[in-house]
Amino acid sequence: MYQFNSGFELLELTKKYDMPISEIVINYEHEMTGDDRELIINKMAANLDVMRKSIEKGLKDDIKSVGGFIGGDAKKLYDKIINNFTISGETVSKAVASAIAVSEVNASMGKIVAAPTAGSSGVIPGSLITIARKFGKSNDELIRALFTSSGIGIIIAKNSTLSGAEGGCQAEVGSASAMAAAALVELIGGSPEQSLYAASFAIMNLLGLVCDPVAGLVEVPCVTRNAVGTANALICADLALSGIKSIIPFDDVISAMDNVGKMMPCALKETAEGGLAKTTTGIKFKMNFSGD
């Protein structure tokens, strides 16, 4: 039996079967759907393929978003990396540029994987694909990492929400960042406990983040928040891998996120009635955008 409803239960399963999180999640999926292992792995490989292509497209093509507020930003950052001129260094900048690339492809009606949502679709591919390349990890290891991410996402979905409309951006980019951080830890050889510490740090750092899209579109500030969710995932994975422990367990962090989401006013949950959407400039952009 590979069913789990909490981080605690997931850790117990990794101990009971002496398996990494990714393997528990693959078994969970097999048990739940009856699909065989090969099909499950192939479906995830298809996700990875779309993720890679969306990064390539975003770094190469001239992107223009539907609302017209963003586009071409991934390329701008990538030029800085090529010229060896970034403050945060090559690894963070590459991961961030990749995340922005996916987010821009999304905003321009290109093909992406909702991971876990379209609005937060840059974080997981940006961080995992960049770090896998840096450490020479194989495609199979990367596919495994996506199962680790999914396991964390399942726990969040069961105990709180992954939707900005229900829980604010903390639930979207915050969750994506936690899913990425946990997977990075496993990818680099950390323990399941360390994966959950990394996921805990990631959400703690973004707790309370509101969802306030300008003109109601998945453009500003969504794209730069994907950037920060990506950098946060890298940092939180490093914290956990260095042996730092979260004193608040993952399940408590999720419960805190859920409480904060419930306390958050509706104006700050994707309705574009507060935050950046209601600034003088935000309102002006909404008026200028011809598409209602």
């Binding site: 093909k111 992406i112 994987v113 909702a114 949502t117 379209a118 999914s150 069961k158 998945v218």
Partner: peptide
Amino acid sequence: MNLREYSVFDIMGPIMIGPSSSH
């Protein structure tokens, strides 16, 4: 807690044309 059973691909996916899974 939400009693719904989630497939891995409810969380990682769908593959879609952006920008919004709901819209």
